[in-house]
């Protein structure tokens, strides 16, 4: 069983929901990424989403845009991100790591080289925001061949036929985008998520994570009630931006701990 499957299986047995934080690799600097990843795990993260910075992050709001710019200025590249995961794996062999970003850096590296290196360093899944299933056939074969889970996004606008199609291709978990908008937006609508989830569940047997617009413990808790995992991105990236080099790991840890507590108390 893959690290992602094992993690969700264990959570299910414990009747708990996954906490999936997102950070951009190389932000605030490359030296902080691995310590931040370990800090996230210690604070209670179950799966790590590691953003691969891109020059043109079209699906991201200002917070993650700025993180990408900082990371690129620090010389972060896709190959560099993969090396960071290798370093992380020296001390953590169990926490799943999913790379999240845009397709072009992978196109430039080549899907086969990418998938092979993912397997080597211990990346578990890959999510490319701008590669829908229709354009992912080639990508897919390479990821599958190396046991890397293709993670797909579904949106409030996704029609039933597409949900069915994604259900066939997806591995690991499915990421439901909880609002119409870019990352970091603040217009999350709980009742709309609640309405959409049964339609997703009809076709998707994998765990469903929900993200985009989850900015505080109360929202994380409310969302956790509805799905299998909560993804928190911009709020954490914001914390990184607002911190100093001295306190960034501690600040992010504290924030993630709060989210953990809230999610674990979802039944209250």
């Amino acid at each position: 069983m893959s690290r992602i499957d094992t993690t969700f299986e264990k959570l299910k047995q414990q009747n708990r929901k996954a906490l999936i934080p997102f950070i951009t690799a190389g932000d605030p600097a490359q030296a902080f990424t691995v310590p931040l990843m370990h800090g996230l795990v210690q604070a209670g993260a179950d799966v790590l989403e590691l953003g691969v910075p891109f020059s043109d992050p079209m699906a991201d709001g200002p917070t993650i845009q700025r993180a990408s710019e900082r990371a690129l200025k620090n010389g972060m590249s896709l190959r560099g991100v993969l090396d960071l995961v290798a370093e992380f794996r020296k001390q953590d062999a169990t926490t799943p790591v999913v790379l999240m970003g845009y397709g072009n850096p992978i196109e430039a590296m080549g899907w086969e080289a990418f998938a092979q290196r993912c397997a080597e360093v211990g990346v578990d899944g890959a999510l490319t925001v701008d590669f829908p299933p229709e354009e992912s056939h080639e990508a897919f074969e390479h990821l599958q061949a190396h046991g890397i889970a293709p993670i797909f996004l579904l949106a409030p606008t996704t029609k039933e036929a597409r949900i069915e199609q994604v259900a066939k291709l997806a591995r690991g978990y499915v990421y439901y985008v909880s609002l119409k908008g870019v990352t970091g937006a603040g217009n999350l609508d709980l009742s709309a998520i609640e309405e959409k989830l049964p339609q997703l569940r009809r076709h998707i047997k994998l765990p469903i994570g929900v993200g985009f617009g989850i900015r505080d413990a109360a929202t994380a808790k409310a969302v956790a009630k509805l799905c299998d995992g909560v993804v928190v991105g911009s709020r954490i990236v914001q914390e990184i931006e607002d911190s100093t080099e001295q306190n960034v790991v501690a600040n992010v840890g504290r924030l993630v701990q709060e989210l953990r507590v809230a999610i674990d108390n979802e039944k209250e």
Partner: peptide
């Protein structure tokens, strides 16, 4: 090559 929200 678009994000899922815009595909429909």
């Amino acid at each position: 090559y678009m994000a899922e929200t815009l595909i429909p």
